[in-house]
Amino acid sequence: MSVQEKLRSKPQWGSGFGQFACWVAAAVVSAVCLSIIGYLVFQGWHSLSWKFFTTDPSESMREGAGGGVRVPIVGTALLIVLAVLVMFPIAVGAATYLSEYMDESSWFTRVVRTGLEVLASVPSVVFGMFGLALFSMPIFTFLSSSGAEGASQAFGRSFLVAAIVMGVHVLPFVIKVSEESIRAVPVSYRRGAHALGITKWRSIRKVVLPAAAPGIVTAVILGMGLIAGDTAIVWLLLGGTTTMGASNWWAPSQFLQVLRGTGATLTTYIFFNSPAGDGNSPQLAYAAALVLVVLVLALNVIASIVGRRRKRQGS
């Protein structure tokens, strides 16, 4: 066949189908994602009211008597704050050490990294069981005393317990993202500090960490989204209730009582009110799900805005 004939030949066909299939896959995923959001908005929208946000869930287990989401929202916020308090220093410390001090080739580094990798893949329900096993030990009564007067075991369920376990649960993720942003700080920054005769730790504290701060904040915000969305740990470690450990929980004097007591979050509220839970008030579940999705979404948007600021600084 001459070159001319070759060039005039009909092209191979069949590749159109594969490309079409990829478009279909993307369309299916988009449609599913949009319909989940659309469904929540459609079903949950009319239950959203001032009353919904300002009343507490009803204590009764009767169907259709769910009440509002005041306590669950406070619970979610409280859990996020506590878990971040637990996780933040450890995550930043570990990320700094991993990126600045550790020798990549040593067996010790490999052990730590493997440990983090495995930790990242441990399901949250197992963390819940771990929390129960650990914090039911009598010496941890101070974390969750409420249900265990005179018992040989601590109750093992409270905001403090749930927050500690939740912090450990999101630790690998936050470490990974923080470490990436610390590593992204240009070497020239460190060299500059080094040239001035500043000690390594001081240069990290004064130069590297401030430069990496937006990235670390991004990591923490994304971690907050994970905490807000988790159900299994909350279900097992915060108690399957819809109320706080103290009836007048807003009073400062009750603060410790609340921290050591059980509670509810948006996720357990949704579960409780879903057709699968005892409350069975789907409309309230949809409304709470909408609130939760908006909250997680807002956290992600904030994280990406902060992340973008980091990129601009870096360039």
Binding site: V3, K6, L7, R8, S9, K10, P11, Q12
Partner: peptide
């Protein structure tokens, strides 16, 4: 046929 061209 661009692919044929690139073969040539």
């Amino acid at each position: 046929n661009v692919t044929a061209l690139r073969r040539a």
